[in-house]
């Protein structure tokens, strides 16, 4: 596998499967993504880093057909919200860019999706959810 770099440090841990890196509040038990130093639900600073579940269910989805500001990757690309078993909704890229091929409540799994090449020719990757059990 060619050398890849994450679009941003601290978003995920690679592996099979990769996992999003979030946080969990000791006071209210709420989960967050990306990681927070303080809890955005209850203001506690007793927050631990946790690896989030690599699977979830699809809650809403669309596809972006024109490049938004600052984006150099391919269009169209899938975009949606996935519910994780921790009780957390995550706004995320989806590997499926045809909305008609997705349905509400569908099982999804985390993958690392190629985004674009950086200035040194390395592949930049971004976490994305794919329909579970796909190729």
């Amino acid at each position: 596998m060619p050398h890849t770099v994450p679009v941003h440090d601290g978003l995920f841990v690679a592996g099979s499967p990769p996992r999003l890196l979030g946080s969990r509040c000791r006071a209210c038990t709420g989960h967050h993504f990306p990681r927070h130093r303080t809890c955005p639900y209850c203001a506690s600073d007793q927050v631990d880093e946790v690896e989030l579940s690599p699977t979830g269910t699809l809650w809403s989805w669309t596809a972006v057909t024109a490049a938004p500001p600052g984006y150099r990757g391919a269009v169209p690309y899938g975009f949606g919200v996935v519910e994780l078993p921790e009780g957390l909704r995550v706004v995320t890229r989806l590997t499926e860019s045809d909305p008609s091929r997705l349905r509400s409540g569908q099982a999804m799994e985390l993958v690392l999706d190629p985004l674009h090449l950086d200035g040194e020719g390395r592949q930049v990757v971004v976490p994305a959810f794919a329909p579970a059990g796909g190729p």
Binding site: V7, H8, T62, V64, A67, P68, P69, G70, Y71, R72, G73, Y77, F79, V91, R93, L115, V124, V126
Partner: peptide
């Protein structure tokens, strides 16, 4: 922005 997450209409 780089990850394509700043797509307001989305």
């Amino acid at each position: 922005e780089e990850a394509g997450l700043a797509a307001t209409p989305a």
